Amino acid sequence: MKSEILKKSSMTESLTGQQVLVTGADGFIGSHLVEQLVASGARVRALVYYNSWNQIGWLNDISTEVLQSIEVIQGDIRDAERVNGAVTGCEYVFHLSSLIAIPYSYVAARSYVDTNITGALNVLQSCRSSDSLTRLVHVSTSEVYGSAQRVPIDEDHPLVGQSPYSASKIGADKMAESFYLSFELPVVTARPFNTYGPRQTARAVIPTIASQLLSGCSELKLGALTPTRDFNFATDTAAGMIALALCKQAEGEVVNIGSGREWSIEETAKILMEVTGREVPILCDEDRIRPEKSEVNRLLADNTKIQKLTDWKSQVSFQSGLAATSDWIRQNLRYFNVERYTI
């Protein structure tokens, strides 16, 4: 967004003692982010999706010590007043709350507009009216790039709405851009590539593969095998978000968070077979195939900008991350129904 040459920040910011809001804290990435923020000394307010069972999602999976140290509030990202109350008094805001499953967006597009675009607008409006905000990290997705037109994919790559999900995230990203350009809101758009790790559900490919293998399947049901993805372990993604939150030079920028390496779905499945010690034939399941023009065939991050702006770099190797993810899934197979395709 900005034209000046980017440089690493010469001022050191710290989250120690700062009031921080995480929307979508009950989700997969959000719960890992909460853990890292607490470890950094932040005072964390976690916005979770309201439900009558008083469930707090994957925050139940974090340690009791960490959970007791945070403020959990229930709400709905579509509720402007509730969001405004959550933002009030916070120095840093991380906006992760979104609907993310691509197949479900094919049948429920309006809910993606309501949650992903209107939800982002609520956060942006609340941050604009805040008298305590230092910086907002708006979380995007690499899906907004569509299939790579050039690799590696830098932040100037064209945006392509190849699914209602990606279109809704493009809309949200552009709202964030407009609030920076129109109102000088201190917002950075973090654009993570494919994140994986403990607590991810079977709507994503790595848990889909690992849960089937660990459940003793005789064949592995998958969709397309040739698409490639730049996979990043959840703790690396969360660390990238924190690095950008602490970087004033990132304000007004879109910044990729990715390893700069890619693996095909077939390669990923074969590594997981080695990790789990189970080798089975792969069956192409037509129900798991995206519409032809909607499939994103290649995602590979250019991470030059985040490395220029911050000291961030990925720390967890793909093989180590897959092993850790498989261990977690093995201990939590009750969350996975391998007989049913999760959209």
Rank of each mutant, 00 (worst) to 15 (best):
N116R: 06
A245V: 05
T226M: 10
I265A: 01
I265H: 13
L272M: 14
A224T: 06
S129M: 04
V93G: 04
S218I: 06
L33D: 06
T310K: 05
V160E: 11
E295R: 15
H138L: 12
N332F: 12
D156C: 10
L214R: 10
Q307N: 14
G258T: 12
L181G: 01
R340L: 04
L300V: 05
N51H: 12
Y180N: 15
S326R: 11
T342S: 07
L124W: 05
E143N: 13
S163K: 03
N54Q: 13
S129H: 07
S98M: 14
A269R: 11
A176W: 02
S140A: 08
I282F: 12
D311Q: 13
E292S: 13
I170M: 06
A80V: 05
M175D: 04
T342P: 00
L6T: 11
E65K: 15
G41Q: 07
Y50F: 08
Y341Q: 03
Q18L: 08
A238L: 06
E286C: 02
T16S: 09
L185S: 01
N256F: 08
C247I: 07
T88D: 12
S9R: 01
L246N: 10
V123L: 04
P291I: 03
V275Y: 05
G252S: 11
T118L: 00
V338D: 07
R334W: 02
T88W: 05
F233N: 06
A234P: 08
L15V: 10
T115N: 12
H95P: 07
S97A: 15
R229H: 06
W263K: 13
D327G: 05
Q55Y: 02
F231D: 02
R330W: 04
V107Y: 03
P103C: 11
R334L: 01
I29R: 10
G171E: 08
V160S: 12
V139M: 14
S126G: 06
N256V: 08
S326M: 11
V188L: 10
A46S: 08
I73K: 13
R334S: 08
Y104L: 15
S294G: 15
E177L: 08
E35Q: 09
S166L: 06
T16Y: 01
S182Q: 15
R290C: 00
Q149A: 10
S147E: 02
M11N: 09
A324H: 01
Q249G: 11
I102K: 12
L246Q: 12
A202Y: 02
L300F: 04
A269W: 09
E267L: 09
D114C: 04
S129P: 00
E279N: 13
S182V: 11
V93C: 08
C247E: 15
R150N: 05
T310M: 04
L21Q: 14
E286T: 13
K293M: 07
L222V: 06
V66M: 03
I153V: 14
A238V: 04
V38C: 13
L37H: 11
V83I: 12
R135C: 05
L159P: 03
K313P: 11
G161I: 02
D236F: 09
D327P: 07
P198Y: 00
D76L: 07
I153N: 07
D230T: 07
K270I: 06
V316P: 09
G17A: 12
I343L: 14
I271H: 13
D76S: 13
E267Y: 03
P281R: 06
K221P: 12
E251F: 02
T276E: 04
T228K: 15
I306T: 02
S147H: 00
V48A: 00
I153A: 03
E279Q: 14
H32L: 01
